[in-house]
Design a binder for these strands. Structure first.
Ligand code: SF4
Ligand code: SF4
Lengths: 155, 155
DNA sequence: TGGAAAGATTACCACACTGGTATGCTTTAT
DNA sequence: ATAAAGCATACCAGTGTGGTAATCTTTCCA
């Protein structure tokens, strides 16, 4: 599956709704109707988003939420990390690894490379890309030749 | 986190061990000592690997396992899909989606793009890449300029 | 042809995580 | 003061994962 959590998904959903209205503050109720989520669920989502500094909250009467920066400056990686912590494909990708066979494993640095690669990709896709469907839906399925491949790997 | 399952990881571990010895068949016991996994766990891993056609099994006395094709021809995506099913970042990425707000969601095709992109990347990294640490461990962290970015997104 | 060597199949269970929900607290504008 | 908002916490059912064992089936060879 390699799926992202549903809450992460909801996070993007909220950011999209906020981007839609520009700089206008939105209340939890307004976001609820805009996104179709329940208020309870929204609260959890908003907390994460605020803690991560992706949206700015204003409390009290006439409060509400607005984007902390423009959709072009919000990376998918930011959102994913906000909800799910650092990207770590394998156990040993994390600092506090508890893989029992790590000492005798020769693949640690190999996985690191893949991990880094995916992070680089996710850091280059922005909220705006997802909103505007910048990414072509039908990518060419032909394999790249060796040179292109190296360039892709090494960015 | 965005982590792959531990069993998937073990799968790569086994494939690495098989690649190490070339065309020689390996028994479950031999793989157990080579990888540090228990025999019970290995059985589950091997079943998945065999079902996916990534390794070839020979039963009976003098049986064992060997790689179905060369490490260069085994894509990480193949292994991931074997253990975790089709890559589907969001609910709606799967055919049988059960996201309740999908009808009123404008991000479906946006996510599709990201999903495709990640799959393309994972399909271009092979077992050999992970074994030989082909991927540079320290990728340049400077952002690409606009043109390069478009080329990356559109492959 | 029988037995040993090997893989295949199935079932079971503890545990952690996820998603969903409710309840009460704090801040701020008027 | 009061109402409108966001903030914090706690709870819980369901699910998925990882780990383990017990049993069946195939193949080779003495
Ligand atoms: S040490 Fe090896 S087996 Fe353990 S998590 Fe890392 S790659 Fe996987
Ligand atoms: S339909 Fe929208 S909210 Fe539902 S899974 Fe897809 S992207 Fe997420």
């Amino acid at each position: 599956m390699l799926k992202i959590g549903k809450l992460t998904d909801y996070g993007i959903l909220v950011l999209d709704a906020l981007a839609q209205v520009g700089a206008v503050k939105q209340s939890t109720e307004e976001l609820a109707t805009a996104t179709g989520l329940t208020v309870s669920t929204l609260r959890k989502v908003m907390k994460t988003l605020v803690d991560a500094g992706l949206v700015i909250a204003r409390r009290g009467a006439h409060g509400g939420y607005k984007l902390a920066r423009s959709p072009q400056q919000i990376r998918i990686l930011d959102v994913v990390e906000a909800f799910e912590g650092p990207v770590a494909l394998t156990e040993c990708s994390q600092s506090a690894s508890d893989c029992e066979i790590q000492s005798s494993c020769s693949l640690v640095s190999g996985w690191m490379g893949v991990n880094e690669l995916l992070m680089q990709i996710l850091s280059r896709v922005t909220l705006e890309d997802v909103r505007q469907q910048t990414l072509s839906q039908h990518l060419p399925s032909t394999l790249l030749d060796a040179n292109q491949r190296i360039r892709l790997i090494n960015l």
